[in-house]
């Protein structure tokens, strides 16, 4: 039922301004289907800003102006209704943010908003999605409990389930493990790797080991510029730019 129709995303000559501040400078980046692209760089380098451009979360930010072309498959995302776009491009945030609803309702929330569905279908989605995120065995007996009653790591997996339940083509993850303990972190990392089989995954991370462990491609940002992008193994072993090397070896950032 979870049809894996992954779609690549692309960014071409993107510039982003907050008022007078030039936050992203001429960014061009391909995020291929069925791969994990990691965006790394020091705080304030624009990586999260770029991520939020991909599902147009910056649209409503005052004074924010985006130029250039962002594509989902062959479509320019400007031509896609933003609400449809966000159903096709899911997002997981830094802090787990389940809705103040039951676990069950959290998972089916997006589906319910898309229209009426028979309960049997929703039940099926809840079970299959929670199984995918490895939460089913932990919560199957308390689906009626509040999502906020779970631990931080479980909440984050619930949020991933919520994003997956509407069957998005792309999954954006904004530092999804920075608020989690090491065990939950490795669970989420495994999950991300698995999701890349049938999704395009873009992950922003401060944790370079994490980028090295799970991503296929890594892009290094510094002061709003895309300094270097390449296959993860290559970029970590033989960075081409001095700035990348300095960052990877911990000389700044």
């Amino acid at each position: 039922m979870m049809a894996g129709h992954s779609t690549s995303m692309g960014v071409e000559d993107v510039n982003l301004y907050y008022g007078d501040f030039h936050a992203l400078k001429d960014i061009t980046l391909d995020m291929p289907a069925n791969q994990i692209t990691a965006l790394i760089g020091p705080s304030g380098c624009g990586k999260s800003t770029l991520l939020r451009c991909l599902d147009r979360m910056n649209d409503r930010v005052q004074g924010c102006r985006v130029e250039g072309r962002i594509t989902l498959g062959d479509e320019d995302i400007k031509d896609i209704d933003p609400y449809d776009l966000r159903r096709r491009v899911g997002m997981v945030f830094q802090h787990p943010n389940p809705f103040p609803l039951t676990i069950y309702e959290n998972v089916v929330y997006g589906l319910r908003r898309q229209g009426r569905r028979p309960k049997s279908e929703l039940d099926g989605v809840v079970e299959s999605t929670l199984r995918r995120v490895g939460l089913w065995d932990e919560v199957k007996d308390k689906l009626k409990a509040s999502g906020l009653s779970l631990s931080g790591g479980q909440q984050q997996r619930l949020c991933i389930a919520r994003a997956l339940a509407v069957d998005p083509e792309v999954l954006l993850m904004d530092e999804p493990t920075s608020a989690l303990d090491p065990i939950s972190t490795s669970l989420v990392e495994e999950l991300a790797s698995e999701l890349a089989h049938d999704h395009t995954v873009v992950i922003v991370t401060h944790n370079m080991q994490q980028a090295a462990r799970i991503s296929n491609q890594t892009a290094f940002f510094y002061l709003g510029e895309l300094v270097e992008v390449g296959p993860t193994a290559e970029l970590f072993v033989r960075p081409k730019k001095k700035q990348t090397e300095d960052y990877l070896t911990g000389r700044f950032g």
Binding site: Y83, H95, F99, L101, V166
Partner: peptide
């Protein structure tokens, strides 16, 4: 928390849906 608004928005909810179904509760 702003996270809740972001969560609603990222799921493709309109601002009104987010307000009624998430923020007010």
């Amino acid at each position: 928390p702003r996270d809740q608004r972001d969560a609603g928005l990222a799921l493709g909810l309109t601002r009104w849906e987010t307000t009624i179904h998430i923020l007010i509760p």
